[in-house]
Structures are given as C-alpha cells and as structure tokens.
Design a protein around this nucleic acid. Structure first.
Lengths: 219, 219
DNA sequence: ACAATACATGAACAAACGTGCATTTTTATG
DNA sequence: CATAAAAATGCACGTTTGTTCATGTATTGT
C-alpha cells in the first residue's frame, strides 16, 4: 500500500479522531475548516486520493459518507474468536427463515465453534431445542439442544434436522438402496420414508435443514 | 430508565445495526424508509423521544447527527463474561488436584457458564470426557463431555462424578433409606453401594467430586 | 524551458437533510 | 362513549452537503 504524505496522514487522523469523538464522520466543510482549506474541493481532493490508496471508502452522494478502512495489523493471522453466540430456536418456521431474526430465537448460547468442527469465521449454525424422545437411543433427550450446521445434503448415518409437515424433526438419515428414510432412534417410532430433496413421496413435505454436529444439555 | 416500546426498540436496534454496517448513522429519511413511515416527522418524533429517555443523543442541525448512548448494564463491576474456558479432563488423578494444572487437561472448551446454571463469575467447573456406556440410558454416551460443578455433596437423583478406586465415574446418586448407592443408567451394570462422605463400606475408596450440570457432545 | 503532478480556489447547483407547524389517525384510559 | 395521549401525515422552508467545472499556484523532474 502506498505511503501517506504528512498532510494525508493528518487528514486521516482527523477523520478517525472526529469519528471517535462524535460517533459519525465529518463533512467536507468541517475538514476544510480544520485545515484552513477554503474550498470544499480541497478536502474532497484528499479524500478521493485516500480512497484510491485504500485508506478510506467513500459512499457517493451521501452526507458524511466516508468510512475508515481498518488496516490489518497483520499480527495474529488466525484471530478467530473461540466463541460464537449461537441462536437457539424453539421451533422452525415454515418457509425460508433468517437466523438473525429475533422473533424465533428462543435463547442464545455462547459455544465454541471450533469444538464442533467448524473453523469458519462465521459458521452457519443454530441450536434447536429438541422436543420428544424419538432419538433417545442416540442419546438425544427431550429438552436437549442440538447444534445444527446448515447444509442441504447429508451422508448416510448422519443425524439431521429436517422440516416435515411444518414441523422440525431430528432423525437419522438413512440411504438404503435408492430409498431415503428418516429413522428415529426409538423402537416406539416408525421410520419416515422420503424421497430425495424436496420431492414428496407420500404427501410428506420434507426439506433438509442441516446436520447435527453437536449437542448441549443443561441439567 | 424508562422502558422502551416495541417500535422504539426496533428503531434503536436499526440505528445500531446501521451504524455498525455503514460506519455512520442513518438519516431521518432512511429510518422512514426502513419502517415505512411516510413523513420525516414520524422518525423525528421517535428519535427525540428516545433522546428524552436517554438512549440517544441528537446534535441539532447536523446531518446524521445522532449518537447511540451505551447504557451500562449497571451490574457488578466484575463484568461477568458470557463465556468461560473450561478445562476438559480425560481422567481424574488420585488425591486432590488443581484444575489449573496443564498436565491433566486434555482439552479446553469455551462454554456458557450462565447456560449451565452458574451465575458465578468464575465457577468451579470442569469438563470430563466420559468413558464407557454405563450411563447410556441417561443420554450420556461414550466420548461425551460432562460439565461438572465441583461440590462435595449431592441431592438424591443427581448425576454425579465420583472417584472410586483411582478411577472417575459418572453415576446417578441415590439415597435409599440410609444407604447411598451410585447407580448406573444401564441394566448391564450393577449399582455400587457406598457410605456417606469418604468412609468406605466395602473396601471402596469413594469421594464425591461434583455434580453433572451439563453435557456437551461433538459428532 | 517544458510538462507533469500535487494542491488549492471560487462559484454555482441539485439533491439531501433537519426543522417547524397544522392536522389527522390510532391507541390507550377511565 | 368521551377524552387524552401517542403516533403518523403532509408540506413548505432554509440550511447543509456532495458534486461539477474552470482556473490558479507551487513543486518536481527531464
């Protein structure tokens, strides 16, 4: 990245200071006043120059539309946080949904995404509170929270979360020959035959939401 | 401080979100657009109201001249973190031991101590990796990590971690009449009779390490 | 001397922006 | 039902703000 002249550095510092003090960036005219520049174009000139050099971002036609760009002090390359505030859902709504929506998040738990095998910076994960005992032989009890990684496919034997008939269920994913069944881990319940991906076989509206990668229980 | 109505909360959240995303606050008209308010006065009304309540500060006659005011959740100065790096033990050594010792900590997991019912700033907790299937009917599988709160006593029905014969075991704590037994949750195993607190009854060297308050499983 | 670059000036403009006021609709309260 | 409070509307006004264009003045390198 190109070097900064003394004046450019001053202006950049001023913007950062102003931002910290006021909570919003300065206008062109405020920069002019600070540096005794009599034309807004003087300030504008420097800003656009700083933008080209990658120190700023300018949103055109917006008042105070300037953002400082954090330059990575390339110290710790893996500054990935060891915790992640995972939303916990009580139920899964019909249709596509946004995990960020506060409506459906029943709770929030801080977890360790690396522990659950996700090294991603922002993993697409959510928690789901399990209702019922259909997976009791897999050690999943009523009231447990399963950690779900959002993905549309699964391998044979995975424990998955699927939406079927407006309800979210946790079952084991079985591929037998060419059939796919959602198998409970409880002899009192019957397996649920489905066809692959969206297609319904017996009037069942089934879609795969994700695979269970972990479990959390509070006693 | 006065309470926020639902709409006020939404607007405040929007400003914060916008601020984080853009680096500067929204204008009145942007707020209007977001909430389908057709007059700038609608937004203005809420902002000035939020200001009176102390949630915002408004600089008059300035574009985007609104600042969110960080409200100190007037809790303890010991700001309790929502996460805690819990040591995970593979086995429990004989005799008293120090959780801080790096020798026996097999792993480390970031957990949410509040979720597991501990509001203490620094709870005396540790994780223990479970070996065997003696508690399988309680939904505790081989390889699971049980979250243990260190304490020397337990209530009837609690799942506890006890050291017996140089080994750490997870069992259910049963008080029957005047006997105390450590009961596996698996018919293939026999209950282990013990006497209270340290005293051995049948040559068993038993001591209670803590009670299980949670469980974490990675798949 | 010449050209190129960096920096500054001035004026004018259209769009964006906060403000003020009068009015109406909605919601809560007794 | 009546009343008050809360919330939203519409419009006009004056200011702020980014933008554009043409021009001026140093400084530097060839």
């Amino acid at each position: 990245m190109a070097e900064l002249s003394s004046k450019q550095q001053q202006i950049l510092d001023y913007i950062k200071t102003y931002l910290k003090a006021q909570g919003y960036p300065p206008t062109l005219r405020e920069i002019c006043k600070e540096f005794s520049i009599s034309s807004t174009n003087g300030a504008r000139y420097h800003l656009h120059r700083l933008q080209k050099m990658g120190y700023l971002e300018i949103d055109p036609h917006r008042s105070r539309g300037v953002k400082c760009i954090e330059q990575e002090d390339d110290n710790q390359p893996s500054s990935k946080p060891s915790f992640f505030k995972m939303p916990v859902l009580g139920k899964v709504p019909a249709g596509p949904f946004d995990l960020a929506s506060p409506d459906l998040r029943e709770d929030e738990v801080t977890i360790d995404p690396t522990f659950f095998g996700s090294s991603m910076a922002e993993p697409e994960m959510f928690g789901l509170r399990v209702k019922g005992d259909s997976m009791i032989n897999a050690g999943i009890n009523d009231g447990d929270i399963v950690v779900v990684r959002v993905q549309g496919d699964a391998n044979n034997g995975d424990i998955v979360v699927a939406r079927l008939e407006e309800e979210a269920t946790v079952k084991r994913y079985r591929k037998e020959n060419r059939r796919i069944v959602l198998q409970p881990e409880n002899p009192a319940y019957a397996p649920i035959p489905i066809r692959d991906e969206g297609g319904a076989e017996q009037g069942q509206d089934v879609s795969l939401l994700g695979v269970v990668v972990g479990l959390i229980r509070s006693m």
